[in-house]
């Protein structure tokens, strides 16, 4: 066993400990805090698996946005009683069976296989992006990404639809009260500019190195949320036309380039000559829409009358 293997095994043991604590712990808040830790450890696991793009997405969404979303929800829904999972022998047996079956599949599949790597390598020169993951996301399997952007929008419509009649069309969340010269207020003014630069950098670098619209968009969303929580800016009312245009711009531009693909032969086919600028343009607009959608998903339904 090498030192690298020892590192992987200890990391996986930590991940499993965190997961067991998330499920088995009594305290709801403790479970959520452990889930944030779990996301962090998983981020390291993705780096070990050589998937830095996934690590960026997991770190930004799993450890960042989901953590803040669940922390807020836990504070609202915690009755202080604590919950232990009920003991269900049948379910335990079934889960052991699932684990065993999946484990057997992993062991039997653990043989060298090239997968789709040669195919991606062969087509990378005409894809318009040097980062193979970005090439798959925006070119080879652009369909998936378009549908994903649509799913985000639909989820946001679902969240908004939960608002009571009197606050429909108003601003999301509550008015934030912040002491201007306090730590929170200072954070809210100091961090967003730095974070915004990091987010834009991740989108820009995404065509040639790990990064991309989703990762960069998530960072911009986190930064916006930070400014909102610190009371520096207010979320726009959900009835605002400008907000709705911003939310739709990304999927719309992506769809438009897809239709333009008919010029190159088929829906979503990019002409290699234009592929690079097209992908970059789609990524930039998509990142802004994703940032707005994700941030509004975290803030939740409108709570204030218009």
């Amino acid at each position: 066993m090498t030192l690298g293997d020892a590192f992987d095994i200890l990391l996986c043991l930590l991940i499993l400990t965190a997961a067991a604590g998330v499920i088995g712990g009594r305290d709801l808040f403790g479970s959520v805090a452990l889930f944030i830790v779990y996301g962090l450890l998983l981020t390291i696991a993705w780096v070990r698996l050589g998937a830095v793009d996934v690590a960026l997405a997991e770190g930004a969404i799993g450890a960042g946005l989901t953590g803040v979303l669940l922390l807020g929800a836990a504070a609202k829904m915690d009755d202080g009683a604590g919950q232990r999972p009920s003991f269900r022998p049948g379910a335990l047996l079934l889960c052991a069976g699932v684990a065993g079956g999946l484990g057997w599949a992993v062991v039997s599949l653990a043989q060298p296989a090239a997968g789709l790597i040669p195919l991606v390598r062969e087509n990378l020169p005409v894809a318009g992006a040097d980062n193979p993951v970005t090439a798959v996301l925006l070119n080879f399997r652009g369909w998936d990404t378009l549908m994903e952007a649509a799913v985000l929008l639909i989820a946001l419509v679902g969240v908004w639809a939960l608002s009571p009649e009197d606050s429909w069309g108003g601003r999301s969340g509550l008015t934030q009260r912040v002491r201007v010269d306090g730590v929170l207020g200072t954070f809210g003014r100091f961090l967003p500019p730095i974070g915004f630069v990091v987010g834009v950098y991740l989108v820009w670098v995404g065509t040639s190195a790990p990064g991309g619209a989703f990762q960069g968009g998530t960072v911009v969303a986190a930064v916006w949320l930070l400014a909102i929580m610190a009371g520096v800016v207010e979320p726009p009312p959900v009835a605002s036309i400008r907000l709705r245009l911003l939310l739709m711009a990304g999927p719309a531009v992506f769809l438009a380039t897809g239709i333009w693909g008919f010029a190159a032969g088929a829906f979503m086919a990019f002409d290699p000559a234009y592929a690079k600028p097209l992908i970059l343009a789609v990524e930039l607009v998509l990142a802004l829409s994703i940032a707005a959608t994700l941030a509004l998903l975290v803030i939740g339904r409108p709570r204030r009358p218009q």
């Binding site: 944030i36 962090l40 981020t43 780096v47 830095v52 690590a55 960026l56 770190g59 930004a60 450890a63 960042g64 953590g67 803040v68 922390l71 929170l184 954070f187 809210g188 961090l191 730095i194 974070g195 990091v198 950098y201 991740l202 670098v205 190195a209 790990p210 990064g211 990762q215 960072v219 986190a222 930064v223 949320l225 930070l226 929580m229 610190a230």
Partner: peptide, 15 residues
């Protein structure tokens, strides 16, 4: 870049 991102988001989770 990822290390930088996590350092930034830690502050976000604290807020």
């Amino acid at each position: 870049d990822l290390a930088l991102l996590l350092a930034l988001l830690a502050a976000f989770a604290a807020v």
